[in-house]
Amino acid sequence: MLHIVNKSPSERTALASCLAHARPGHCVLLIEDAVYAATRGHAAGEGLAAAMASQVKVYVLAPDLEARARAGAVADGVSMVDYAGFVDLVAKNPRVQSWL
């Protein structure tokens, strides 16, 4: 399953809720304001690290990071994808859940 989050973790609980329901083998893609969660030093990093430790794969959309001047600060273990990579993720996961 691919989980997609687009809300800032400082403003909404979408990411926390998503990580609480993601299971081993699932993918989480951070886009729009959710990309801040994947940057070094962000308070949301702990939750992401714990998810990754339990076999959840975390991706972040590069164009959204670049737009926000955070592309150089991606946290360890998080994979950057471009739009083509976004499409690949959707194609390879039979189910997608958006955490609005």
Binding site: A20, A22, R95, Q97, W99
Partner: peptide, 18 residues
């Protein structure tokens, strides 16, 4: 509980969020 909810979601074919 949260874990049961996560398991339920994992059984679904389609999830639509609001």
């Amino acid at each position: 509980g949260k874990a049961e909810m996560a398991a339920l979601m994992d059984e679904m074919d389609v999830m639509i969020s609001f």
